[in-house]
Write a protein that binds this DNA or RNA. Sequence first.
DNA 1: CCAATTGTTATTTA
DNA 2: ATAAATAACAATTG
Length: 280
Amino acid sequence: MPELAEVEFFRKRWSAGHGATVLAVRLHAGKKVFRGTSPTLLKRKLTGATLLDSETAAKQMLFRFSGSGLPRAESRWLGIHLGMSGELRVEPPDYAATKHDHLILVQQQRQLVFNDPRMFGGVLFHTGKTPPAWWTRIAPAILSKEFTVEAVAVFLRRRARAPIKAVLLMQERFPGIGNWMADEILWRAAIHPQRLAGSLKPAEVRTLHRECRRVCRLALGTIAGKGRYLPPNLNAHIPKTWLFWHRWEDGGRCPRTKRLLVREEVGGRTTCWSPVRQKR
DNA sequence: CCAATTGTTATTTA
DNA sequence: ATAAATAACAATTG
């Protein structure tokens, strides 16, 4: 499920546990979400640690914990990727874990739950004074200064023969963009998803860049919430003027042209577009 | 039984 | 050799 803003939404849920100690760690060792990680080490190092703060980058979250005991102890860094079906929840102290709750951090007042039925998500763990490489090597955010028109143009030239839809899903240049955001961006930019990346004119590249930023900003504002306010459920505040609400319904119509939307596979993913608005 | 799913990676093909 | 297409992963739902 989760793309950029949705990931931020879930991270904020767990911020309920900032400043609180982890009394116990419950996990499903051996499950696929722990590939590349030692569940034993994670459990040992996080038990007794305090959750200090957290951040989001692309589709990943990083939670920082103090070391227990020694004041100069190294930090503990927990990375979570939600994959296709993952979510974070906050449950009461007496909550009983269910089948797909692969990692639970038990605190005095609550349990922080990572649930992921399909297990395309994953958990990473690191101990050290600075954030690990798997975190710092994430590409610069779309809303950062480094995400320039020129950087987009260079990338599109290198991926010239791939459909633009597929290129927007490449995390090394468009971190956090997933299937529905890519469609939303192309729909707003009025670019056909099957256009080859190298065929975009300079003006179209500028538009694409601008709509990438706009969709990220709007999605973060409506899904992840502003300031301290967290919407009760995901997507609750997305306006009906977005492609988002119409892309999956049969007979769905473009919110702008009111004409029927098209749904087809592009770049290996189901893609929705408005044929009147987005010409080949 | 078949097809579908908002993600990533390994493998195969061009 | 490089990049694009495809398969695979796992679980559930319609």
